[in-house]
Design a protein around this nucleic acid. Structure first.
Length: 463
RNA sequence: GUCCCGUUCGUCUAGCCAGGCCUAGGACACCGGGUUUUCAUCCCGGCGACAGGGGUUCAAAUCCCCUACGGGAUGCCA
């Protein structure tokens, strides 16, 4: 175990934003890469917002992504408590330290942190009034991504509100000191505030940790300006959970947002990501999240799964849609899924794609129907196929026999290939013109189902 | 307004720190073609970027400056 201690310090809001998730992930990756400690600290000072459900969303999301913490809620650790709502005494103690060194004063019931330097008043156009300012020494922020950033604070700021509660800047620094955090990896929206934090670290007589400010994830310009917010599509981790994305794929996609290992590697297992992860390879510029890329990565993960595992993920999706029962035969399920696995990019498409394997009550694709029914005499063709296949007994209902049966049908009509009958048969048994490979599909459907549907088709379409 | 950060194909990015190997590489998306019974797969091809201007240098995507644009901060929110 190395000295490296990082933390993810979310405020539970009831959403697990993709930007937060990436911050959590990068902290975790760094900890794992450095063999350090990853602390989860909950900034639940806003009692109204921070409910048990909100915390649950967060913890579930973290677990789903496979981001485990070494210290924090539910497991504790040597530097707890890990909920800020339980650290009031610590904050008051640290406030007292600042008071003894004369770095605080009270105004209108709130406690301010006093900057050091020459004071003057100036008209501030942003606040549209005369304000007191301080010529404080600029502080140096060691940022592992951006290099040295120099910035000066110019106004005293509140550290304890008039209601007696400490502010974010204060608790953040106090907790980082108490928890011996060595690297603060967080979003760039905190960079400007970091000068406040460094002032505080120094006032406590502590050296500031190394900072790493991550580039922000911006909205798709089509939907607006600024950073991505929880209202934007694709911005919430729970959305990907609900849509049955593979968590490993989401994690892989997230890791690639603002970081990459150099070279052309993209699809990587988590061990390789951990091994390759380095703060120095983090992008400076903001990124825009692209769901299409995420889907592509998801598809790559899906395709690479052994069918047993694919089935393990797919089963709940299909039972959720009521397509199969809990006790559906695993061999049959896997036979069907094997035909679908490399055809669809996301498990959320699976029910619509394979419904007809499990029920006669599936939707027919109107476009495909129109196109097909326009030419020839469909009911007659279907009847021909039905008769041709009826000779194949249940026991030898497989691709080879089906191929033979179709071949015989073709020869009977003086044709070399049976392709004339295929599109129609496909539609008659599945209600669509696209899908898995044809013969294997018939095989998986089974003799009874195929013959029954052909007949149903004849009846439905004979004038 | 002020301060801070950023800017390579539509998008994610490689290259930049250690200037020449860059007529700028990859991936996604898109377009075209092929394979195929169908297809959302697969294969091949195409489109497509160093924000602009100055400088330094034999040589700049890479170093410096300016401008523009984008983002963030400027809260008794976090």
């Amino acid at each position: 175990m190395s000295e490296v201690r990082v933390r993810f310090a979310p405020s539970p809001t009831g959403f697990f934003h993709i930007g937060s998730a990436r911050t959590a992930l990068f902290n975790w990756l760094y900890a794992r890469h450095m063999d350090g400690t990853f602390v989860l600290r909950v900034e639940d000072t806003d009692a109204a917002r921070n409910t048990a459900e909100a915390l649950d969303v967060l913890l579930k999301g973290m677990r789903w992504l496979g981001i485990d913490w070494d210290e924090g809620p539910e497991i504790g650790g040597d530097y707890g408590p890990y909920f800020q709502s339980q650290r009031g005494d610590i904050y008051r103690e640290y406030l007292a330290r600042l008071e003894t060194v004369g770095r605080t004063y009270e105004q209108e019931g709130a406690v301010y942190f006093r900057l050091e330097g020459e004071r003057y008043t100036e008209f501030d156009t942003y606040h549209d009034k005369e304000v007191e300012k301080v010529r404080a020494e600029p502080v140096e922020i060691e940022d592992a991504i951006r290099g040295k950033v120099v910035r000066a604070e110019s106004r005293d700021f509140v550290i304890f509100r008039s209601d007696g509660s400490p502010t974010f800047h204060f608790v953040n620094v106090v907790d980082d000191i108490c928890m011996k955090i060595t690297h603060v990896i967080r979003g760039e929206d905190h960079l400007s505030n970091t000068s406040k934090h460094v002032e505080l670290f120094h006032a406590f007589g502590v050296e500031a940790p190394v900072f790493a400010h991550l580039p922000l994830i911006l909205k798709d310009p089509k939907t607006g300006k600024g950073k991505m917010s929880k209202r934007d599509r694709g911005s919430l981790i729970e959305e990907y959970q609900e849509r049955h994305f593979l968590s490993g794929a989401v994690r892989n996609a997230l890791a690639l947002l603002g970081w990459n290992p150099g070279g052309d590697r993209e699809i990587m297992d988590i061990g390789d990501i951990i091994e390759a992860f380095d703060i120095r390879d983090i992008q400076k510029g903001a990124a825009r999240f692209d769901e299409a890329k995420m889907s592509h990565i998801n598809f790559q993960y899906l395709k690479a799964l052994p069918v047993e595992t694919y089935s393990w993920f797919a089963r709940p999706v299909l039972t959720g849609e009521g397509l199969i029962g809990e006790d559906h035969d695993e061999d049959h399920l896997q036979r069907v899924l094997a035909l679908c696995q490399d055809k669809i990019t996301s498990l959320e498409e699976l029910p619509a794609f394979c419904a007809y394997f499990f029920t006669d009550d599936y939707e027919e694709n109107e476009k495909a129907a129109k196109k097909l029914l326009k030419k020839g005499n469909p009911p007659e063709l279907a009847a021909q196929v039905r008769v041709a296949l009826a000779d194949t007994p249940e026991a030898s209902w497989d691709v080879a026999s089906l191929e033979e049966a179709f071949g015989a049908l073709a020869r009977q009509h003086g044709e070399e290939k049976p392709f004339r009958w295929w599109p129609l048969t496909r539609f008659a048994v599945s209600g669509t013109s696209s899908g898995p490979d044809f013969l294997p599909m018939l095989e998986a459907l089974g003799r009874d189902t195929v013959l029954r549907r052909l007949q149903r088709f004849e009846v439905a379409h004979s004038a």
